[in-house]
Design a protein around this nucleic acid. Structure first.
Lengths: 342, 342
DNA sequence: ATGAAAAATGCAATCGATTGCATTTTTCAT
DNA sequence: ATGAAAAATGCAATCGATTGCATTTTTCAT
């Protein structure tokens, strides 16, 4: 029993008949304290089971050693990979990671960001919600020069470090690949175009068509939220066209999967009748039959990079107002769903 | 520019010529402050852009409003689902979630748990690392009566609330199902047996065999770390046996996938030649061909439940030393990999 | 032994918010 | 107008750790 409250440096000081200042310095290995005293203090600390109260230390030091990360959905492979990468770097650098998910809801995102601020995180890493339309909440950080790093779904209006993949190029590569496979009518299924990731992929898609002298047919471009159900609906819609597509570039692997499963059901051959390419390389994409061609986004590495940039900013003596955008390479992984053997 | 430091209640007090106590009370809607003063203070707070410093508040209140969660690997579907569930409940209840991953390394886990303690989380949710052998670090919590909830991979030696799935029953159901499909030599691929999850599944497996008068052949039980590579090695080892199994109950879906892919390669038919069942219902299990029969673990719900129990303990007036174990239902999902049509 | 320099330690304020108790101000019946 | 009761506000300590400056102690040459 006993074990009332946790012992503090004052308890140690009292026990040893010295001042709390000395205890504090000794525990922090401040050379101003003699070797002898230091050892005595550390021994007593061990004996009493002293554990520093980091909250008190944080208050005094005006630093929380905590970084926040906000994602649309934790439980999604790409995002959990990023989080894992962030944690990896943060832990090694002595930072805690506070996490929250917006569920793609702008209003929740605002509350989260505010909460992260009042909890005084030293910096924030965020990929914005699909339904975010206003970015005032982020000015709590950008406006006060608190380090902020966007990843994947960035906000152009706010200056900050960014970690992105080259979505334009990704979209271009996918489309070019489909063209090289002989496809002529390539549909594109995409997400909300206020998200730069999606609009860039779409731009890449269009550019590739133009570069290869194929017509851009707006009828073949469908915008929705890219859920499994959305994918199914989009695919059914495309099948109803008098002039069907011979390929679909899906905005993510989830909808590519919807397409594949539906086509399997209705007897449309992939890739022979319609070729499919996704985006993100979800774990299932490799193992479904036919396996899904996709763009690999290095989530874990993006998380590591974002954390490095953020911590770099936090620990930089002075903000120089200089921001960096790191573009991670994408890789087109060609699998069965788009590989037309001849 | 300007915008030096953040304004504090003292800045507000000075500006309004009142005391900081009154400001504090007004902002917290303490009825001791008159309506009039309260409104005046709130208006000033808004005007100055005052944001409370939660760290200071936490120190004074001896409460961090933060809960910690430690998992082996963030980037794994089951765990990220649990995290998502924890975040869901925690956010609604006004708690922050600090996350860290042990990478299944006992030493890192110890450092994480210690860090969570010195950061004074109000409670901890943990699924222990595969390679954890000592549990002294957890006594920082259990010994000091700080709320602690284990999930999935629990520690029997430490009294605490627990959220588990019925692994014994899960293992039993899988094995019984295979037996009903006509399998006679059922192999079992399992993880480190110091983890209760694995040893319980194995007990369930054995019990089902015994109950159905089938021999338990230790030769058919392989223990490893259940990675994709481990799965492949185990399967190859089983194929070398003079008396091959006609079914494999894999400790997770990852190794079930290894088996399926390898069998596809070498021309062994699943489920006709060898039936396969996994565990956990990974997203890929539904879509691989053949789709993988498995046990569904409700990760998100487990996270919600764990967070509810933890927060319940945190907010309970006094610890009563009473602990609860919640067993979540498992569901056997029968798919192609084990469904032998006749 | 002595005094100056160097080394070690301590005082007291600070980081912002909170709160028990005291004091001041307002209300209101007479 | 007056005084008691009620309402509103403020003082000062507190949560633990940190740190600039001052003070005390030790070292060491003479």
């Amino acid at each position: 029993m006993s074990s009332k409250a946790e012992p503090t440096i004052h308890d140690l000081a009292r026990k040893l008949n010295i001042s709390a200042s000395t205890v504090s310095r000794a525990l922090n290995d401040n050379p101003r304290i003699s070797q002898k005293t230091r050892e005595k203090i550390k021994a007593a600390a061990l004996e009493l089971g002293y554990q520093p109260n980091i909250i008190a230390s944080n208050l005094r030091n005006r630093k929380s050693n905590t970084i926040g990360i906000v994602v649309p959905l934790i439980n999604r492979h790409f995002f959990s990979s990023v989080i894992s990468g962030v944690e990896d770097v943060a832990f090694a650098a002595g930072y805690n990671v506070v996490i929250s998910q917006s569920n793609d809801d702008g209003e929740k995102e605002q509350r989260i960001v505010h909460s992260m601020f009042v909890n005084r995180v030293d910096g924030l890493i965020i990929s914005i919600a699909m339904k975010s339309t206003t970015f005032d909440h982020l000015k709590l950080f950008s406006g006060k020069k608190i380090p902020l790093v966007f990843f994947d779904r960035i906000v152009r209006e706010i200056e900050a470090d960014r970690v992105v993949v080259d979505d334009f190029n990704g979209g271009y590569k996918v489309t070019k690949h489909l063209i090289e496979q002989g496809c002529k009518r390539i549909a594109h299924l995409t997400g909300p175009l206020n998200l730069i990731t999606y609009s860039d992929r779409k731009r890449g898609y269009k550019q590739a068509l133009v570069d290869h002298h194929l017509e851009v047919d707006e009828e073949l471009i469908i915008v929705n939220n890219l859920t499994r159900a959305d994918g199914l609906m989009a695919v059914q819609q495309l099948l109803k066209l008098k002039n069907r597509p011979d390929a679909i570039f899906c905005g993510n692997d989830t909808t590519a999967l919807s397409a594949i499963l539906h086509f399997k059901e209705v007897g449309i051959k992939v890739p022979e009748d319609i070729a499919i390419v996704g985006f993100s390389n979800e774990p299932f994409s490799e193992v479904v039959t036919p396996s899904i061609s996709t763009i690999k986004q290095p989530g874990f590495e993006m998380g590591q990079k974002a954390a490095q940039m953020l911590i770099g900013q936090i620990e930089k003596k002075q903000r120089d107002g200089h921001f960096e955008t790191v573009t991670m390479p994408t890789e087109l992984i060609i699998r069965e769903s788009s590989f037309v053997k001849r």
